[in-house]
Nucleic acid binder design. Structure first.
Lengths: 228, 228
DNA sequence: ACGATGCTTCGGTTAGGATCGAAGTATGAA
DNA sequence: TTCATACTTCGATCCTAACCGAAGCATCGT
């Protein structure tokens, strides 16, 4: 009578409209916070919290804690795959949602994340460093290469001092606007300081946004070319 | 922002254990009566009746009235396909209903997946067909080659008739026990029918497993030699 | 140190639906 | 006709889980 795997548990997880909407929101592949997912599900954060705990217990989601945020993503590609197969079947009776994204263009472009550069420019910088072989990426782990060490020393970063510090040199930090990793750790801090010292950019008084000067922007973009 | 179709209704239908068990029973491809499905779900017939009405309203099942019986089957191939994809995920996540019992090995070896052969033998068959050049694989897309067409015609498959059918000839279907693809589509169905007609194997009454006769097994293994 | 923010946990309410006994309908058999 | 079988519908019970307010915990920013 009882054969094979139990699909009812998974069905039940998907079967709640709030959870289904949250999962659908995560189908985009981007990490979302609990608050954002609550909005996606049309429920309060406390209700969303219990839903997210259940989804995580069912191995449909994983969470990544960062500061006071919890970023949720689908557990892996296989989750998205079978969700898509259900969507393929369910096509036709869609219940559609509206979800506004973050605004603040300046913040999205470049801002402070604790002590390092975040936003579009922060992500671009890390991508560029990886592409040129200055940093090796193993999943979420980052490591400065010898090439990278000499390059960064040339632009005025005291890599030796950073290496002897207790603080990890390279850490990846999930970007809330780009939803991709940017560079944190001692090196991330040093790079931002470097830009500020050179006058390429300055912090604004009221916001966490970072404003580049025209010349500084030119230099920054030249130093970290788009990867694609 | 518009998102995809509503998967929660489908999830809710699958989410009830009784309904999930009935659907799993129907994965065997055979039409079952309401009473049989009640037994499969471990519930009374009146409860099963309401469940079956819901599943039918959700387009997961169709029924055929015959005398005083109502025979239920999965609505079409696509239902079996996405159910199998959920099973594949559930099997990999430990969402098992019970510890592997005596019937498990038989199921893993060879079973019905809606209307075609699945399990170790199903995977072996597809692997073998690909290895000998009878089927070309481009990722998940499969195509019968001219070589394959003549070979299969020789063993008694009416390939021409299948090609003129609306149903796709070759489809890959992910196997929940092997976690690899086996052959579905019109050709998958025709091959299984061919084996059953020849008496190489027979379906069991209560389970989805397919039992090969000693001689049938010998022929099958010779026809589809292990690859690797 | 302090408040603000993001999230979780607790507690109590409520609604939906799964369940089955009993009664009703349809079909087949004697 | 009469009974038996297969299934559905009705009615009532009961239980789960979804929900949110309030309070608690953790972290950030100042």
């Amino acid at each position: 009578m009882k054969e094979g795997p139990d699909i009812s548990q998974i069905g039940a997880l998907i079967g709640d409209p709030a959870r289904a909407n949250m999962l659908t929101a995560l189908m985009g592949g981007k990490a979302l916070t609990a608050t954002e997912l609550a909005a996606a599900g049309g429920i309060t954060v406390q209700t969303a919290s219990t839903h997210l705990a259940k989804l995580e217990a069912g191995n449909l989601l994983v969470q990544r804690k960062q500061g006071r945020h919890r970023y949720f993503t689908l557990a892996d590609e296989s989750v998205g795959k079978f969700l898509e197969s259900i969507m393929g079947f369910a096509a036709g009776r869609g219940h559609l949602r509206h979800k506004p994204g973050p605004k603040e263009p300046a913040l999205r472009k470049a801002r402070i994340c604790y002590d390092h550069l975040a936003g579009d420019y922060g992500v671009r910088m890390l991508d560029s460093l990886i592409a040129r072989g200055a940093i090796d990426a193993f999943g979420d782990d980052l490591a400065l290469t010898e090439t990278g060490e000499s390059e960064l020393t040339c632009i005025g970063i005291d890599v030796q001092a950073l290496k002897s510090s207790r603080r990890p040199l390279c850490r990846s930090c999930l970007d809330w606007s780009e939803r991709r990793a940017h560079l944190a750790g001692g090196l991330g801090k040093a790079l931002l300081s470097n830009f500020l010292d050179k006058g390429w950019a300055r912090r604004t008084a009221e916001s966490r946004s970072v404003v580049f000067s025209p010349e500084g922007e030119r230099q920054f973009l030249a130093l970290f070319p788009a990867t694609k």
